[in-house]
């Protein structure tokens, strides 16, 4: 009892001492619905709100021949990602388009919702972006091995290299590994 009151009092004093500039407390995670280990935090709540917003935009957009404002907005996002996947993935784009569209719209909704005052920015925590990036990374590796078998290891070797050169090349130019490592954090950095 006494400890809880002192903690609350010190918390209140800390809050009062912070003044008008308090840039860090907006990132605090607290429980909205307290259910022990299954609690809903404000981070989870805003992620759910982001998912609901994306679903609402894409499901409630009318399917008219002459598009309304909401419909052209939804179609704009759809076509943007469709073009991007088609340019990069070619004829495989249909398989992975839903995943990329979901990822893009979820991150976009989380980021934009976080700009509303008093909202919580889900993507500001590195654990969220890291989890998303690891999902993509592990998923792409599994797909690579499932589609190509052990030939997938060839991504570490430049094409058209005679086998003898590899003995020299592998120790000195393990650059695909290092470039993979350097590209990987750029996905996960919360900017």
């Amino acid at each position: 009892m006494t400890t809880s009151t002192t903690v609350a009092a010190s918390g209140a004093a800390e809050h009062a001492a912070k003044g008008p500039i308090d840039p860090i407390s907006q990132f605090e995670i607290h429980r909205v619905i307290d259910l022990g280990p299954f609690s809903l935090t404000n981070s989870g709540l805003w992620a759910i709100i982001a998912i609901c917003l994306v679903s609402l935009v894409f499901l409630s957009a009318p399917r008219k021949l002459v598009p309304t404002r909401l419909q052209s907005f939804a179609e704009g996002i759809y076509e943007f990602i469709d073009n991007m996947t088609h340019e990069v993935l070619g004829h495989h784009s249909r398989e992975f388009f839903p995943f990329v569209l979901t990822l893009f719209t979820f991150i976009l909704a989380c980021n934009v919702l976080g700009l509303i005052p008093y909202a919580f920015t889900v993507t500001s925590h590195i654990i969220v972006t890291l989890a998303l990036a690891l999902t993509v990374f592990i998923g792409a590796t599994i797909i690579g091995f499932a589609r190509n078998g052990l030939r997938y290891l060839k991504i570490f070797v430049p094409s058209g290299v005679p086998p003898l050169i590899l003995v020299i090349l592998i120790p000195s130019r393990s650059y695909p590994i290092s470039s993979g490592r350097s590209r990987f954090p750029s996905v996960s950095s919360p900017t």
Partner: peptide, 13 residues
């Protein structure tokens, strides 16, 4: 994020 996902998948495919 979406573009890098596409590039990784392209590498895998």
């Amino acid at each position: 994020f979406a573009l890098l996902t596409c590039l990784y998948l392209n590498d895998a495919l």
